[in-house]
Design a protein around this nucleic acid. Structure first.
Length: 569
RNA sequence: CGGGGCGUAGCGCAGUCUGGUAGCGCGUUCGGUUCGGGUCCGAAAGGUCCCCAGUUCGAAUCUGGGCGCCCCGACCA
C-alpha cells in the first residue's frame, strides 16, 4: 500500500478521552474510531490487525479439528428462558421487542444457541465429540465500558463449544483448546499467564483464564515461581501470621467507631485481631454473615461458591431488620438460626478477637469463633500481600492483568435444561457434556500494545502488525531515492510481505514520527544513503539500524522478516 | 447504580466567574520557502458554542430540565 493513497488518520495530539496506553495509541495511529461509549469502528489499519489475529486463531482452531460456523447475534428470548439465563444475565443483555411484540435479545455469548443447534442435530454417541467455533460480534450492555478496546459493548469474540459424550472426552477437548490457545497467543507474540479461574455466570466444573500482565488490566492474579497461578477471585493461599494479644472477655464501648481501622486504632490492636463481619443476601433471600480477619478482604466470588448461589451485599435497611443493628457494629454473636454464619479458614478459632456486638457503639472483646454455636468454615478471603503459596510456601506475587481468553468445562449445565441429549452405546439418552472457550480478539491487540509500546508509539509483534515493513522514502522528488524505494516496494510486495510505502511528500521528521507511531517492526529508510549505495534497515522495537547495500537490501529484509517470525515460534 | 470531571472548528484548548461582533495552536486548502526526527512566511476555508425551555433589549456565558463522553467505585463470560 502506498501511504499517499491510504486512509491512516494519525493524530499528533493525545485525544482527551483516552487514558490508557493502548487506547491512546490506537486512536493516535488511526486503528479505531469511537462511535459511542464502548463502541468502535475499526479503521483500515485496525481491521488489518484484527484480520491477522483472527487468521492465527482460525488456523489453530482448525488444527485441533474445530469447525467454523457462524451463529446469529439476534436471538429469540425463549432460548434464554430455557436455561434461566434470561434472568441471570440481568442488565448485561440487550433486549427488545420486534414489530410483533416478540421478545428478542442480542447475544452476549452463545451457549444457548449452540445447545439448540446440537439438540436438533446430534443423535448418537457416534457423532461425538464435536468442536464448533465462530468469530462473531457479541453485544454486552456493560455498566461501564472503559479503556478503549479493553471493555466494550460490541466486540468480536472467537467462541468455541465442544460437545462430548462423557467427562473424559471433555477433558481431552479442554486440553486441546488450552494447547491451541497457548499456540495462538505465542504466535501473536504476547506474554501471558494461564490461571485457575471462577466459572461465574457460565457455570460448570472448571475454568482457566489467559491473562496478560498489564497495569491497564481489570483483573488481578496471584502467581508463584513454582508455577502456581490463580485469579485473585478464587486464589487460595497460606495467610501471613498476625500479631495478637490476650483480651479480657466482654463488651467495650466504641462510640461511633465503625470501620476496622477506626476500632483497631481506638483499642490499640492490629487490624488482624479484629473479626470483620459482612452481611450478604442470597438469591433465595437467605442472609449470610461472612466473618474474616480484619486485615483480609472478602472475595465475593469465593463467598458465592461457598453459598452455592448468587449473592449480593445486604442493604443497610436489611441489616437493620435482620440484626437490629447498624453496619459497623455487626458480629457473629447471638444470632438466630435464620442467619448462616460462614467463617473464613484463616480465622484461628482459638484467637481472641474484637468484633461487633450487634449493638450500636459497642464491640465485643476476647471473642473466639469457637464460641459460635452454628457456623461453617470456608475459604472466603482474597489473597493479601504477604500471603504464601499453598504449593511451595514461598511468597505469592500479585499481578494486574488483562483477560484475553477463558476456557470452561460446562458439563451439562445447558444441555440438561435444553434437553440436548444423545443415545449412548446402550441406547440410553444422556445430556451432552459441553465445554466453552472464548478469546477476545480486540483484547489481543490492546494487550500487545500495552506490552510493547514505547514513548514513540506502538511496537507490534510482526504476526499481528498491520504492516510488517514500512518503506520511508525521504525526499520524494529525488529520482534516485524514489526508484530505489519503488524497487524495494515492488520486490517485497512480490514476496508477499505486507509493506507500507510512505511516498508522501513530507519532511523526514514527520515521516519518522508517523512510522514510529504505527509501529511496523521493520522500517527501511531510503534517503541520502542512496548516494553511497545503501539504505537503512531499522528494527522498531530494538531501535537499532544497519546500512544495507541497495543490491542486497531486499534479501536482508526478507531474512529479518523471517527471523522476527521465527522468534514467535 | 453512587461519586467526580468535562461538552466551544477534524484534534488539543482559551473565553463562562463579571451577559454585548466566537478566539488561539495543530491539522486542512492555496502560494512561496525548506528538505534525515512533527521547517518557516503569507493568505483562505471551516462553528446549530451538546439539546430543550426560561430570564434578558441581548445568552457560549445566568436559571431549570435533559442527553452525551471520560475517570474512580459498585458491577462484570
Amino acid at each position: 500500500m502506498r501511504w499517499s493513497k491510504a486512509f491512516i488518520p494519525t493524530l499528533k495530539e493525545v485525544p482527551t478521552d483516552a487514558r490508557v496506553k493502548s487506547h491512546i495509541l490506537m486512536l493516535r495511529s488511526g486503528l479505531i474510531q469511537q462511535l459511542a461509549a464502548g463502541i468502535y469502528t475499526f479503521l483500515p489499519l485496525g481491521w488489518k490487525s484484527m484480520l491477522k489475529a483472527m487468521g492465527i486463531v482460525r488456523e489453530e482452531m482448525n488444527a485441533i479439528g474445530a469447525q467454523e460456523i457462524l451463529m446469529p447475534a439476534l436471538n429469540p428470548a425463549e432460548i434464554w428462558k430455557e436455561t434461566g439465563r434470561d434472568k441471570d444475565m440481568g442488565e448485561i443483555m440487550y433486549r427488545f421487542e420486534d414489530r410483533k411484540g416478540q421478545d428478542f435479545a442480542l447475544a452476549p455469548t452463545h451457549e444457548e444457541v449452540i445447545t439448540d443447534l446440537a439438540r436438533g442435530r446430534i443423535r448418537s454417541y457416534k457423532e461425538l465429540p464435536q468442536a464448533w467455533y465462530q468469530m462473531q460480534t457479541k453485544f454486552r450492555d456493560e455498566a461501564r465500558p472503559r479503556s478503549g478496546l479493553l471493555r466494550v459493548r460490541e466486540f468480536i469474540m472467537k467462541d468455541s463449544y465442544s460437545l462430548c459424550a462423557d467427562a473424559e472426552q471433555l477433558d481431552e477437548m479442554y486440553r486441546l483448546h488450552e494447547a491451541a490457545y497457548r499456540k495462538i497467543f505465542d504466535r501473536c507474540g504476547i506474554e501471558y499467564y494461564v490461571v485457575g479461574a471462577s466459572s461465574g455466570l457460565m457455570g460448570g466444573t472448571g475454568s482457566e483464564e489467559f491473562m496478560v500482565p498489564s497495569e491497564a488490566g481489570e483483573d488481578r492474579i496471584a502467581t508463584c515461581g513454582c508455577g502456581f497461578a490463580q485469579n485473585l477471585e478464587i486464589a487460595a493461599s497460606i495467610p501471613a501470621k498476625v500479631e495478637w494479644k490476650e483480651l479480657e472477655k466482654g463488651e467495650v464501648h466504641t462510640p461511633n467507631k465503625r470501620t476496622i481501622e477506626e476500632v483497631s486504632e481506638f483499642l490499640g490492636l492490629k487490624s488482624g485481631q479484629m473479626l470483620k463481619s459482612l452481611m450478604f443476601i442470597t438469591k433465595s433471600k437467605r442472609p449470610i454473615l461472612a466473618c474474616l480477619r480484619g486485615d483480609h478482604e472478602l472475595s465475593e466470588e469465593k463467598l458465592q461458591i461457598a453459598a452455592g448461589e448468587q449473592i449480593r451485599p445486604a442493604e443497610p435497611e436489611e441489616v437493620q431488620k435482620i440484626t437490629g443493628t447498624e453496619i459497623g457494629f455487626l458480629g457473629p454473636t447471638g444470632f438466630a438460626d435464620n442467619v448462616t454464619i460462614l467463617v473464613d479458614s484463616a480465622v484461628d478459632p482459638e484467637m481472641p478477637f474484637v468484633t461487633g456486638a450487634n449493638k450500636v457503639d459497642y464491640h465485643v472483646a476476647g471473642y473466639r469463633t469457637s464460641d459460635i454455636k452454628k457456623m461453617s468454615v470456608a475459604d472466603l478471603r482474597q489473597v493479601a500481600p504477604g500471603d504464601m503459596c499453598e504449593k511451595c510456601g514461598k511468597p505469592l506475587s500479585l499481578i494486574q492483568t488483562i483477560e484475553i481468553g477463558h476456557i470452561f468445562k460446562l458439563g451439562t449445565k445447558y444441555s440438561a435444561p435444553m434437553k440436548a441429549t444423545f443415545l449412548d452405546e446402550n441406547g440410553v439418552a444422556k445430556p451432552i457434556v459441553m465445554g466453552s472457550y472464548g478469546i477476545g480478539v480486540g483484547r489481543i491487540l490492546a494487550a500487545a500494545i500495552e506490552l510493547f509500546a514505547d514513548d514513540d508509539g506502538i511496537c507490534w509483534p510482526i504476526a499481528i502488525a498491520p504492516y510488517e515493513v514500512i518503506i520511508t522514502a525521504l525526499n520524494v522528488n529525488d529520482e534516485k531515492v524514489m526508484s530505489v524505494a519503488e524497487e524495494l516496494y515492488k520486490g517485497l510486495s512480490e514476496e508477499g510481505i505486507d509493506v507500507l510505502f510512505d511516498d508522501r511528500d513530507l519532511r523526514a521528521g514527520f515521516k519518522f514520527k508517523d512510522a514510529d507511531l504505527l509501529g511496523a517492526p521493520i522500517r527501511i529508510t531510503v534517503g541520502r544513503g542512496v548516494e553511497k549505495g545503501v539504505v537503512e534497515i531499522f528494527r522498531r522495537r530494538e531501535k537499532t539500524s544497519v546500512d544495507a547495500p541497495i543490491e542486497s537490501a531486499l534479501q536482508s529484509v526478507l531474512d529479518l522478516w523471517e527471523e522476527l517470525f521465527a522468534e514467535l515460534g
